[in-house]
Design a binder for these strands. Structure first.
Length: 895
DNA sequence: ACATTCACG
DNA sequence: ACGTACGTGAATGTC
């Protein structure tokens, strides 16, 4: 068995990876996607090839590349974008850390190094794999030298392999012929001139006839086409110069002792540290098997089920005055503690003080929770991860202040981490340990895969203890670090006075849930079915065949190919069949109108009628999850099910709201802010005209129309008002003439005029929006009125689209975020007031600018009054906050 | 796992 | 030349 050498074209693969892997960066802002992609390709190669030797060649000067999108565009090559450029030195660092030899030699291109090494190795009897994204290397292919070209196909990478025979099979020329082909046709991207008048087709025909360039010139008179023949003769020098340029050198003065390229231990300590720094979490797994580095933490974890021990521990915690804790229970929903799979508590009250208290023997769930609850009542500072799920245990002995949901003794590291960077997709304890404590801990998945906590405790106690103890430790140790960072970012108050209190409110709302009439919901769904079936038959008949109307692919083919409707391709995968496209066709094509109706009805059926029914629990109620750490702007989100997108805009959809009802002897009180975002804009921009407009208490869109279109208020037409309204919305979204023109179906130019007029009317709004973008570029983030931050990394992008997006986000986030802050304040105040007055009414839902309260009939007047009051005065802005309030026997009637 | 569509604010 | 309005979540089809 001969030895094997793998050669990698460094810049080329890095470039492929850069465009193939979505943008990634570590917490320091260093882009890492190309490195990540490169490593994935590298690891895949190593597994497949198991080579003895490997080396990566780089050009000395960073080369330019053909732009992915426009490979043939005028021969210009895009310079390497900054996001890729900064990754090159780090990539080399990573390779060196893994003991991989890199090659770069002044005066030599990577191609020449690779070609030379490949041929040399072949001569010495090795098998060679040469990996590049560039087809130029195909000229090196032989029986022993395999050229491998990774292609990013969708999510995964596929590799095309070429031995000499494969090159011939695919391209009809030998590897050597490749050079001649290029010499004749040229390659603008590589600055190879080629022979004028000779393109790909002619070049290929000439070679088929004459095989080589030499032979061609020996028989140049036999070339039939006159123009080509003359060009060939006139440009003989150019042809040979091109041949030279196209030839990859296989005899360059490369100095390499194979031993330097021999692979050794890849998973070194240095590499480990680098991977950590780059935050390649799923690549770190490769190191785990190598080094079972026991984190020093595990030795400190004290496990006991002895009552006296446990009592001592709680005493010690009380004495310490603060601790990190973890409630060891798996629960999707926040519930009473008896209903959870509680299996113990973990506590940490010092660097060396970590205890795990499994619920068994005398340590009952109830006892443990009441001890924890006592700590809370005693004013001990408590830090945990995801406090919403800890509340059942934490509150099991009642309240400290019955009517206050704010207490500075509670600290949720999850919420803190979210505030510091709301853009992340998840905030796992291991991420917090890494980012805040620079400590690697084993993840739950690593410790016990998919086992539930209870199963883990039974089957793998050691791992369970490690998980539990570590969790408490992270909560303990990360608290001061996060707290300090919040302080530095000016978000301490936001955290203490808005986020922590609102977590309590959300917990109560989830626990309470909302009553849904199951049978009425069922009946609603049934009523849809007949019409859906009718439409389905009708659509299939009109189309002349049966197909799946729900498949955009099939639908697109039927409409735009079979039936020949106009409406060009819009998506990557085919025709767009989105509603706004179909609506334009509906007038002329009855089938399209039917499809739209079908879409609407099936949506109602599957998402709402059937979808909601699955979430009705035994108490007849739906308990949604309100997520506090999801959105980039500070809004709450709702899942399982989403109760923040229940239909409203169409009458048929809106009827679903009739199945949401209050319990017996209760009714619904519903209040929503009137244009809170525009009012927020008026306040934070300080625009006198806009503030004045709101003080006049008249229809804001009509006022805007009047001012923008220079029309007396009474004479504003409906169209003018509609346009003004669209502009008002557009401003909040981060206006662009394109977006507005789309929305109003007008030209960009007209839209631009509207915007100009708008800014002339409200000049300080423009100043404000410009300043947001300016500040965001300066600081990397924008803030709300209450100090909430939204980082905007897109502003640094070299991509125009991304940057424009960043600018719109910079304009929108302070507005949307401030409105979200105000709503949270209102929720806290409403909750506290309900408790202070010992009322039975309870908050049910929050829908961004709307609150729904399940109201005791006896309290109806009082609740309406306090709800409106607390919402209106949640913030005192330079314009008043107006609230529309309704009551009713169900949600439909209460709006 | 990803894309498309559509429900809400 | 580029190709979008901001913020979400669920269902469905396709790979």
């Amino acid at each position: 068995m001969s030895e094997k050498l793998v050669l990698i074209d460094g810049h080329s693969i890095l470039n492929r990876a850069f465009y193939g892997v979505p943008d990634l960066s570590n917490s320091e802002g260093l882009h890492t996607n190309a490195i990540y992609g490169f490593l994935n390709i590298l690891f895949k190669l190593l597994e497949e090839e198991k080579p003895e030797y490997l080396t990566v060649a780089f050009d000395v000067k960073a080369p330019t590349f053909r732009h992915e999108m426009y490979p043939e565009y005028k021969g210009t090559r895009k310079p390497m974008p900054q996001e890729l450029h900064e990754q090159v030195p780090v990539m080399k660092q990573v390779l060196h850390a893994m003991g991989i030899r890199t090659m770069e030699q002044p005066g030599l291109e990577a191609d020449d190094i690779l070609g030379t090494l490949a041929k040399r190795a072949e001569k010495e009897g090795m098998d060679v794999s040469l990996v590049s994204g560039d087809r130029d290397l195909l000229q090196i292919a032989s029986d022993k030298i395999k050229i491998r070209i990774p292609k990013t196909k969708g999510a995964r990478t596929e590799v095309e392999d070429y031995y000499a025979a494969d090159v011939e099979a695919k391209y009809g020329v030998t590897p050597a012929g490749f050079i001649e082909l290029k010499a004749l046709m040229g390659d603008t991207a590589d600055n190879i001139p080629g022979v004028p008048k000779v393109g790909e087709k002619t070049a290929s025909e000439l070679l088929k006839q004459f095989q080589t360039l030499d032979n061609l010139y020996a028989h140049v008179e036999e070339v039939t086409k006159k123009a080509v023949r003359e060009s060939l003769i006139a440009n003989k020098d150019l042809a040979y110069l091109s041949l030279d340029l196209a030839t990859i050198r296989i005899d360059s003065p490369v100095v390499l002792d194979w031993n330097e390229a021999r692979l050794g231990e890849l998973y070194t300590e240095d590499a480990y540290q680098l991977f950590r720094k780059l935050e390649f979490k799923n690549l770190l797994g490769r190191f785990e098997q190598k080094e079972t580095k026991q984190d020093s933490l595990t030795a400190k974890i004290h496990v006991t089920s002895d009552l006296a021990d446990a009592q001592e521990i709680f005493e010690a915690v009380k004495k310490a005055g603060h601790c990190g804790f973890a409630v060891l229970s798996d629960q999707k929903k926040c519930r009473k503690i008896e209903e959870t799979e509680f299996c113990g508590l973990a506590l940490c009250w010092g660097e060396e003080q970590i205890a795990v208290l499994p619920a068994e023997g005398f340590l009952t769930a109830q006892w443990l929770c009441s001890q924890l609850s006592d700590l809370y009542l005693a004013g001990v500072g408590l830090s945990t991860f995801e406090i919403k799920k800890a509340y059942p245990a934490l509150l099991s002995n009642g309240e400290k202040d019955q009517d206050s949901c704010g207490t500075k003794t509670l600290f949720d590291v999850l919420i803190a981490a979210y505030l510091l960077n709301p853009l992340k997709n998840d905030y796992e304890p291991e991420d917090i340990a890494k980012e805040q404590l620079d400590r690697m801990i084993r993840t739950r998945k690593q410790l016990f895969e998919k086992l539930s906590l209870k199963e883990a405790y039974a089957q793998r106690p050691e791992e369970f203890y490690e998980y539990a103890g570590t969790l408490a430790y992270v909560c303990y140790a990360a608290m001061p670090v996060l707290s300090q960072k919040l302080e530095e970012a000016g978000m301490q108050k936001l955290f203490d006075e808005i986020e922590m209190p609102v977590s309590r409110v959300l917990y109560e709302m989830e626990k309470e849930g909302v009553l849904v009439r199951r049978q009425e919901l069922q009946a609603y769904g049934d009523a849809l079915v007949d019409r859906i079936n009718e439409l389905e038959t009708k659509i299939h008949e009109a189309a002349g065949c049966e197909f799946n109307i729900n498949s955009p692919k099939q639908l697109g083919e039927i409409l735009f190919e079979k039936m020949g409707l106009k409406g060009g391709k819009k998506t990557k995968t085919g025709y767009s069949t989105a509603a706004d496209i179909l609506e334009k066709l509906a007038a002329d094509n009855p089938i399209v109108a039917d499809i739209l109706e079908y879409r609407g009805l099936t949506k109602l059926k599957s998402t709402y009628a059937d979808g909601l029914a699955d979430y009705i629990e035994e108490d007849g109620r739906i308990h949604t999850s309100f997520n506090q750490t999801i959105t980039a702007t500070g809004r709450i989100s709702s899942t399982e099910p989403n109760l923040q997108n229940i239909p409203m805009r169409t009458e048929l959809g809106r009827l679903i709201r009739k199945v949401f009802v209050p319990r017996d002897n209760y009714l619904f009180t519903d209040a929503d802010y009137s244009q809170i975002e525009l009012r927020v804009l008026a306040h934070i921009s300080g625009d006198e005209q806009l503030i004045e407009a709101y003080k006049s208490d008249a229809d804001i869109h009509r006022i805007t129309a009047s001012k923008v279109f220079h029309t007396p208020f009474e004479e504003v037409t409906d169209l003018q008002r509609r346009n003004a309204k669209a502009v008002n919305f557009g401003i909040v979204y981060g206006i662009s003439s394109f977006g507005l023109s789309q929305d109003l179906s007008i030209t960009r130019k007209e839209a631009a005029t509207y915007i100009e007029q708008y800014f002339a009317t409200y000049p300080q709004v423009k100043t404000f929006l410009d300043k947001q973008v300016e500040d965001a570029k300066q600081n990397g983030y924008v803030t709300t009125l209450y100090g909430r931050r939204r980082p905007i990394p897109e502003l640094k992008s070299s991509n125009f689209m991304q940057r424009s997006f960043g600018e719109r986000v910079a304009m929108n986030s302070p507005i949307q975020g401030t409105a979200a802050d105000i709503m949270k304040l209102a929720m806290i105040h409403v909750w506290e007031e309900l408790h202070r007055r010992k009322l039975n009414s309870r908050l049910s839902l929050q829908i961004h600018d709307e609150l729904l309260i399940e109201t005791d009939r006896a309290e109806a007047t009082e609740v309406a009054e306090l709800l409106k009051d607390k919402m209106k005065h949640a913030a005192e802005l330079s314009v008043s906050l107006e609230v529309d309030l309704h009551t009713g026997e169900n949600w439909y009637d209460a709006k």
